[in-house]
């Protein structure tokens, strides 16, 4: 039983990271109806921003202090938000009314560009992420091993989710986002500037991806330019599992994918699936959802009209 709870905790903190990435996919899909393939690579850029900013920020705000942790997180989120907005402005906006396939191929191009430019700029070898926090196991929990980083990942994720909910539900821009995802034409007739709202959505999603990148790097302190591919794909699966376009669904899907992946690896001997198949788990889930419930757990059916 202890082992099971341990696996749940590990899965939850992995799932929280997937959830943060999945939110970006789902928000962009909700508004533009396309999958931003490059999203996983924005997450990679976020982790690298943390890597490059951490030494100087920690010199100013104190080694391993809470203040420097927050400043690093916010700075990386701001840079990636800008990156997301720039990508949208330069590449996706000129293609807004083109066929879906064109946009999809472009998104793949942007993703490949970030990965390979990353290898050129950051260097292809993995880098050790600096210690931003004092990571150690929390004592007094019996046989359970819960680390500070796991608690931190969950706490930051919950805080960001609450913030996002507040933005989407209570602010004017959030209302505009929901209006746009409901009906873009009607929204612009009501005086909403679609361009601003779309740019804002990209910025918001990219900032969350950057946060996920930093949190991942804190928990698993080795980063490389291709680190965004698999988490990006798994987060996409999470978004589809929760029902793409649905914000609570993305969070739920992320957590579920993290849990399933951790449980499959943790109990690989019992269920006779070698743990080397861990990366195939998410794809298997994706194929099953698309076959049996393409709208996802919380999504609504989107009928194609002729």
């Amino acid at each position: 039983m202890t082992e099971f709870i341990q696996q749940l905790i590990n899965g939850l903190s992995l799932g929280a990271i997937y959830a943060l990435i999945a939110l970006g996919y789902t928000m962009v899909y909700g508004i533009l109806r396309f999958i931003n393939f490059a999203h996983g690579d924005v997450y990679m850029v976020g982790a690298y921003m943390g890597f490059y900013l951490a030494p100087s920020i920690m010199r100013g705000f104190g080694q391993k202090s809470i203040a420097s942790g927050i400043v690093i997180l916010v700075a990386a989120m701001a840079i990636c938000a800008a990156l997301g907005i720039v990508i949208e402005r330069l590449v996706y906006r000129p293609l807004r009314n083109r066929p879906k396939l064109t946009v999809l191929i472009t998104a793949i191009g942007v993703s490949l560009f970030l990965e390979n430019a990353g290898q050129y700029v950051f260097g292809p070898d993995p880098k050790a992420f600096p210690d931003i926090i004092n990571d150690h196991a929390i004592e007094g929990l019996g046989d359970l091993t819960v680390t500070v980083s796991q608690v931190l990942v969950l706490a930051v994720t919950v805080a960001l989710l609450l913030l996002l909910t507040w933005i989407v539900k209570k602010t004017k821009l959030g209302m505009a986002m929901r209006a746009l995802s409901f009906n873009p034409v009607a929204a612009s007739l009501m005086g909403i500037n679609n361009d601003v709202v779309i740019a804002f959505t990209f910025g918001l999603g990219s900032a969350l991806a950057a946060a996920a990148g930093i949190l991942f790097a804190i928990s698993y302190p080795s980063i490389d330019p291709l680190m965004g591919i698999l988490p990006g794909l798994k987060a996409f699966v999470a978004a589809v599992l929760g029902g793409i376009g649905n914000i609570p669904g993305a969070a739920l899907g992320g957590v579920l994918i993290g849990l399933v992946e951790t449980l499959v690896v943790g109990y690989s001997d019992t269920i006779h699936i070698p743990s080397t198949y861990r990366d195939a788990v998410a794809f298997a889930i994706l194929i099953l959802i698309l076959l049996f419930k393409p709208t996802g757990l919380l999504g609504a059916a989107d009928r194609e009209k002729v």
């Binding site: 590449v91 000129p94 293609l95 083109r98 066929p99 064109t102 946009v103 191929i105 472009t106 793949i108 191009g109 942007v110 993703s111 490949l112 560009f113 990965e115 390979n116 430019a117 290898q119 050129y120």
Partner: peptide, 19 residues
């Protein structure tokens, strides 16, 4: 040396100008 950078730019530019 890094042909994938060129490929990715080629994809983006093609889609923008000559899909």
């Amino acid at each position: 040396q890094n042909r994938m950078i060129l490929y990715s730019l080629l994809l983006i530019v093609l889609m923008l100008t000559r899909p």
